[in-house]
Write a protein that binds this DNA or RNA. Structure first.
Length: 389
DNA sequence: GATCCACGGGAATACACGGATG
DNA sequence: CATCCGTGTATTCCCGTGGATC
């Protein structure tokens, strides 16, 4: 985001007549420092991590729970806090973060943004040191060496690895290999949706921590907290939050996505508060089996560009993959060959970002084409994407 | 100069159908 | 009738190259 966009956003925030004061605070892809209603889960994770306060590494562990149960919210908030702890509240600035002797370092790695071996080691190193680690001109082996040297003189590190086991993700074996490339004084905390029985990962862990879906009341609190942070006073009635929470059935991602869409709809209509039909529309826009918007927004830039064009197409232009490809390529903002656009579309279908649906054949010749359906709320993506440009 | 990885482009494979074959 | 084959699309797979970054 450039300076002008930032200034513009602040301007809008100061405009008292606006419903949406801060999209960031409402964003389903942004986690807050204090995840509301997940206190017990934080405690259980702290129980597991307790040895670090005596300078001892905990064993490997696996955190699991269904989509939208707050796994990432809890782990990111917790690791942000632990990083502050090991930097000594930033009082001492050295090149490394773990200035307090005896306390391990902490790093949070999101596998959604970590496709290669290089990217993984880069993310770990970047999480452990204060200075920025270059992304070019340095080899994977160099990174591994730097990590080895860094950790050799330290009391180790705990690495949280979020979103394991997603499609196209590094699988268990690869992940274990990645950690095998690090010194032995590294403990990991994997986070995923699969139950402990479903993943091989648990053959390497001593502990599993389960997060259950949000209870309805807790989810209402989450929504009201977000509304208080991002909307004008009284922008969201309690009963509408209840309605969203009821529909979301414990999935905080979908609930926040619905709130975001409803608020955006109301904002565009220049209303001063969210109305019931805004909520109805929003609920209708979030697909049944949705993909995380965070996952969509973690895609490479040009794939997001293709999606951005895709969400603006008419239904006719989406009749087949070929037609969709053509329409997207015709967009001046898209500077990609048709072959690449088409490949991107198929790849994203493979990832579950969009879904291929076989359309009724008309010609009778050859394999019938498919059309693409979105697995995320288009106006949420549109708004979040545009805010980042 | 070194490194990573996104793109482009095309080859290989899958699928659906109708017609031919046994 | 069951199976195979040819044709036309759709989809997946693969890898060399070049742009961007350090």
């Amino acid at each position: 985001m450039d300076i002008d966009a930032r200034i513009e956003r602040r301007q809008r925030r100061d405009d008292g007549h606006r419903l949406v004061r801060d999209y960031e605070a409402l964003s389903p892809v942004v986690h807050t420092d204090e995840p509301s209603g997940r206190g017990p889960a934080v405690e259980r994770l702290l129980d597991h991590l307790d040895p670090v306060f005596d300078g001892v590494l905990p064993p490997n562990a696996y955190v699991h729970g269904p989509f939208g149960a707050g796994k990432s919210a809890v782990v990111t908030a917790l690791f942000a806090g632990l990083e502050r702890l090991s930097t000594g509240q930033g009082a001492i600035h050295t090149s490394t973060r773990a200035a307090t002797p005896g306390t391990p370092g902490f790093a949070y790695v999101d596998m959604r943004e970590t496709a290669s071996e290089f990217a993984f080691y880069h993310a770990v190193l970047d999480g452990l040191v204060e200075e920025r680690v270059p992304e070019h001109g340095i080899g994977t082996a160099d990174l591994r060496e730097r990590l080895g040297a860094l950790l050799a003189g330290r009391s180790g590190a705990v690495v949280a690895v979020d979103h394991v086991g997603e499609p196209d993700d590094t699988d268990t074996e690869e992940l274990i290999d990645l950690f095998a490339g690090l010194p032995s004084n590294v403990s990991w905390l994997a986070v995923g949706r699969a139950s402990p029985e479903e993943t091989e990962l648990t053959t390497y862990t001593a502990t599993a921590v389960r997060l259950d879906p949000y209870r309805r009341g807790a989810l209402v609190d989450v929504l009201m907290t977000r509304a208080a942070a991002g909307l004008a006073q009284g922008g969201l009635e309690h009963r509408l939050a209840r309605r969203i929470a009821e529909w979301a059935a414990g999935n905080a991602h979908d609930a926040l996505a619905a709130l975001f869409v409803a608020a955006d709809t109301a904002e565009r209509a220049e209303r001063t508060r969210v109305m019931e039909h805004d909520v109805d529309g929003a609920i209708g826009e979030v697909p049944e089996r949705s993909v995380s918007l965070a996952r969509v927004l973690a895609l490479p830039a040009n794939k997001q560009l293709v999606l951005r064009a895709l969400v603006d197409l008419d239904p006719e232009e989406r009749a087949t993959v070929a037609a969709t490809t053509e329409a997207i390529s015709a967009e001046p903002s898209v500077d990609l060959s048709q072959g690449t656009v088409k490949r991107f579309l198929y790849e994203m279908a493979e990832l579950g970002i969009v879904e291929r649906v076989r359309s009724e054949r008309e010609s009778g010749k050859g394999r019938p084409p498919s059309r693409l359906e979105l697995r995320f709320a288009p106006s949420a993506f549109r708004r979040l994407y545009d805010l980042r440009q």
